[in-house]
Simulated assay, not measured.
Amino acid sequence: MARKKTKDTAALLSQTILFRVRQQEYEKLLQLAQQSDCRSVGEVVRRILENRRILLFHKDTSLDGVVEELASVREELRAIGVNINQITRHFNASTQAHKRVFLAQQALEQYRLVGQKINTLLTLLSQLARRW
């Protein structure tokens, strides 16, 4: 699908400016483009020329381990939830009493796993709270 043509011809980037920079300066501009909301080095240069704001993004790598653990706990909780839904569906479809008791015990065990994961979450959150 093609891009719509703009009616405001003054807003088009129609003029080309060529200039050379040293490798070190180009690498700085490239690094600035990668750490900012700019998509290219050209956009960085245009914003500098126009005195427009460049938003820089900073990633705190000290929290990577905690964030990975939180993501894994979230996935485990999602899987446990899927298991509980399946057990509940089988429980509601079953008419045999002994099978319903067995499914209820399975659901109870899954809920205990949820309790363990919540304890893990609380310890991770307490670690995060100490860092703040």
Rank of each mutant, 00 (worst) to 15 (best):
M1I: 06
A2E: 08
A2F: 06
T9M: 15
A10H: 11
S14N: 07
V21Q: 06
V21T: 05
E25V: 05
Y26C: 04
Y26K: 14
K28G: 06
L29V: 01
A33Y: 01
A33V: 01
C38N: 02
C38I: 00
S40G: 05
V41F: 01
E43I: 01
E43S: 02
V45F: 01
I48L: 10
L49K: 13
N51W: 05
N51D: 15
N51L: 09
R53T: 12
S62T: 10
D64Q: 11
G65T: 11
V67F: 06
E68K: 12
E68G: 11
S72H: 14
V73F: 03
V73L: 09
L77Y: 02
L77K: 04
I80H: 02
I80G: 03
V82R: 14
V82F: 05
V82H: 12
I84Q: 05
I84G: 05
N85A: 09
Q86V: 02
I87P: 01
I87S: 06
T88F: 08
F91H: 08
S94L: 03
S94E: 04
A97F: 04
A97W: 05
K99G: 01
K99P: 00
K99W: 07
K99Y: 07
V101F: 07
V101R: 12
F102A: 12
A104M: 09
A104N: 13
A104W: 04
Q105K: 06
E109G: 10
V114C: 07
K117N: 07
T120M: 15
T120I: 07
L121D: 00
S126C: 08
S126T: 10
L128H: 07
A129D: 12
A129Q: 12
